[in-house]
Design a binder for these strands. Structure first.
Lengths: 246, 246
DNA sequence: CTGCAACCTTGCCCTTAGGACAAGGTCAAC
DNA sequence: GTTGACCTTGTCCTAAGGGCAAGGTTGCAG
């Protein structure tokens, strides 16, 4: 008959751990000897090893407690599957860690930084560039592949003088009064150009989660009442979809 | 500029998590808008993703907070190494889980059960058999290979009539008075047989952790004052080592 | 205009699986 | 007989949030 300390050392846990398992009903309280010490049969070693194996696998104690011979088989299958996905996750995290170690502090691909660096020469305001930079950061941080698609489209758009002027006009519209009729005209031109370039759907939007688009749009609208008005008008003309200008 | 909910959804965490990171100093508190809402720059998305990557790797938040560009390199190397060992552990646990699923409820190898089943016919008491069974369970649960060595030795011992009589005499000694001179004589016979069979060291003991032996011995001694006395005498004659009878 | 749903704010308590420590009783060894 | 290593119960503490309450905001719909 073992004392609690002996039992614990056998299995490689602390005595507190054993007492916790008693309190939670995982391990039956054994009898006491004359001086009130717990005395364990050898079976307790087996029980405790079983509990530790499951606990090490990440199974919550409450779930271990509720295991019965009846549900054991299916539960174990589930636990094993969870463990397999956990291992896969950890491997993915390791890969991400290495990126973090390698490309320290560079959140945007070099081409994007180059693109942003070239914008002042084209006549874009510092405010516009800062906002566009933020949008690229969010997009690349959360959806790198989609961001790449957008980015290629964007750089290509800027080679067309008509489209470039449209972007510049949007930039300048930031400080217009929201009721300025200029905005109406600008919205018309943007819608026409958008339809000509993409059809009735902005690029990439139909195939992806709409919330990200809404978030981007919200961030843009926040910075200027005129832009917000512009967005409202464009959405009215294109039917339910906004255009971020990116 | 993002609200806390937008930021959280981008990165896939709860708003509470973001607030906790503020409280713990991992993420700087951003400015507030007119109504007191937190407003985040895009940079916060990048910061938060970095924190989550590390947290997902199992790094405690306090340690993430204390990362500086100076110690980042070495820390990341350490974290990656920890992650690698963690993955290895999980794979080992998976293997143990499968054992648990396969050999449900059988804690002793079939030969050991057979051996125990044969003991009553040889004249061993139920008490002795129960005790021996417990010892095998503990030994197999914690040190299967050592247990196998011992077991093979034990079954072989029982084929020798002289040794078998010695075990039977030990069994019966359980109820003797601790001062009975019989014990003295029995101790002498056990020591002689032990030295003849193993030399001055009990088998396997010299090469292994002594604590396991002491625990086994303690468990045996507890059940009878006579056995305890017997153990003391044997240890005196063999010099510091006990004999478990197994 | 008013209501409602979906946000945001702070503050508080709850959870898991134990660790740490206190104050007292026990055991074995020198 | 005292010392050190055990055991007992009870209490508080931890990490990383979850959940809820009570109140203020915002945006959209009728």
């Amino acid at each position: 008959m073992l004392t609690i300390g002996q039992l614990a050392r056998y299995v490689g846990v602390s005595t507190k751990t054993v007492r916790v398992y008693h309190a939670k009903g995982l391990l039956p309280e054994p009898g006491r000897d004359a001086s009130g010490y717990r005395r364990y049969p050898a079976q307790a070693v087996v029980d405790l090893l079983r509990i530790r194996t499951l606990a090490d696998a990440g199974v919550p104690l409450a779930r271990i407690r509720d295991l019965t011979p009846a549900n054991l088989g299916t539960e174990l299958k589930q636990i094993d599957a969870d463990l397999a996905t956990r291992i896969k996750q950890l491997r993915a995290i390791r890969a991400r860690l290495r990126e973090l170690a390698g490309g320290e502090l560079r959140f945007l691909p070099a081409e994007v930084d180059d693109h942003l660096d070239g914008l002042p020469a084209l006549g874009f305001s510092a405010r516009w560039i800062a906002m566009e930079r933020d949008l690229w950061i969010i997009l690349y941080a959360t959806q790198p592949d989609l961001a790449d698609t957008f980015f290629r489209d964007q750089t290509q758009s800027l080679t067309d003088p008509a489209l470039r002027d449209l972007y510049l006009a949007s930039d300048q519209a930031h400080d217009l009064d929201p009721t300025d009729p200029e905005l109406e005209a600008l919205a018309d031109r943007i819608v026409a150009a958008s339809i000509e370039r993409y059809g009735t759907e902005p690029p990439g939007m139909s195939s992806t989660d709409p919330t990200i688009h809404q978030l981007l749009q919200g961030a843009v609208n926040d910075s200027s009442p005129a832009w917000q008005r512009l967005d409202t008008m464009i959405r009215g003309r294109l039917g339910r979809h906004g255009v971020t200008g990116v």
